[in-house]
Design a protein around this nucleic acid. Structure first.
Lengths: 198, 198
DNA sequence: CCCGGCATCCTCCATCCGGGTGATGCCGGG
DNA sequence: CCCGGCATCACCCGGATGGAGGATGCCGGG
């Protein structure tokens, strides 16, 4: 099954598996909801899944697939390999994570490997998982503060908006800085955006 | 001619034009240099061009195409519609700007329109061009300062790094804030990243 | 049951940031 | 030739920021 909101990509993938004997494209979906519906009907062995989609996104779709159809192996196929995307996909339980610049043969191999119960990782994704010494994630509350910082809010405004004291805002930010390895709010929002946290 | 670094997308586009009588895919390229070489050999009427590519990127490729082969109409086909991408593409002289979620028929129409000398814009791109009353661009020097801000530098450090006084740094930043419509450095880097300026 | 993480709060303080006002020299386009 | 944008600099000031140190209550996992 192919899940991607871009018609071009869906057609491209379908074409790539068109004359491959042991692989058949049994369904296509343009978003998460369609994917769940198609999975029930078409019963695919493997799903190639984009992460960025309108409506129900890739991670949410994968989580529901894991509970409804645990036998379906999901391979993430996306353009990005940000830490946040990769870790969330791993946590959701995927059988593979490839980037869209992967050549045709790699995709064939990946689908076969996944169907056989194996796992496939793009090199850059693998290294992203390994070279993660202290990838501390800010807590939900801390991210909430950081989001307001990204909008240009001062500590006092954040305090008012979140109904907490200004001191608390500063404490949250101090922790955010430590976790992201930065020293200023400007650098913090940059790192957060690069990691896909905002 | 199709220019895109993703094999999947190239195949998808080729497939989409496969059984269309009046359109023929005469060349494919995975980056800008290949595109220039193929353009010379295959003499396409229209080029579908991705912007983000390794090596020579889309804008650079378009600029060279415009001088070497001004008769080739270029349609940008990309995932992003950030202000920076759109304006740079327009400045480079493209015949169209579409997003990758465009359906097959739209692509067909776009290629025919471009070949006939017309212009095609995706709705969101068109509105991005229109709703730009005061889209002030920071000057190169101002962007240089902003880049250091994004790395977490204090004004004093920026001054040292750029060999100017701290006062000048503040002046540059004041102008940046005004141009981006923000009030803090954190918000400034966010807006700059969203507009593709960093 | 206790430890760690989270969220909340406090005080003190040096430094930094952003706003205001004003100025100079240079360059390129009208 | 003059205007506007760019880049450079100075002084002043109030408020914001970030660091240090400590404190409380809550919750969930080992």
């Amino acid at each position: 099954m192919i899940v991607d909101d871009h018609p071009v990509v869906r057609d491209g993938l379908r074409g790539m598996f068109d004359h491959v004997g042991d692989i058949e494209v049994v369904a296509e979906a343009a978003d998460g909801f369609q994917a769940l519906a198609m999975a029930r009907r078409a019963r695919p062995h493997v799903a190639l899944m984009d992460l960025r989609m309108p409506g129900l996104d890739g991670i949410g779709t994968i989580e529901r697939l894991r509970t409804d159809h645990p036998q379906i192996k999901v391979i993430v196929l996306t353009t990005y390999d940000t830490d946040a995307d990769v870790t969330r996909a791993m946590a959701a339980g995927v059988a593979g994570y490839l980037l869209k610049d992967a050549p045709r043969e790699e995709l064939h191999r990946a689908v076969r490997t996944a169907a056989a119960g194996g796992a496939v990782l793009a090199p850059s994704v693998a290294s992203a998982l390994i070279s993660r010494p202290a990838a501390q994630e800010p807590s939900p509350r801390e991210l909430e503060v950081l989001r307001l910082v990204a909008r240009g809010a001062a500590n006092k405004e954040i305090a008012r908006a979140l109904l907490i004291s200004e001191t608390t805002v500063k404490t949250h930010l101090k922790h955010v800085f430590a976790k992201l390895g930065v020293e200023t709010r400007a650098a913090a929002v940059v790192v957060a955006m690069e990691r896909g946290l905002l």
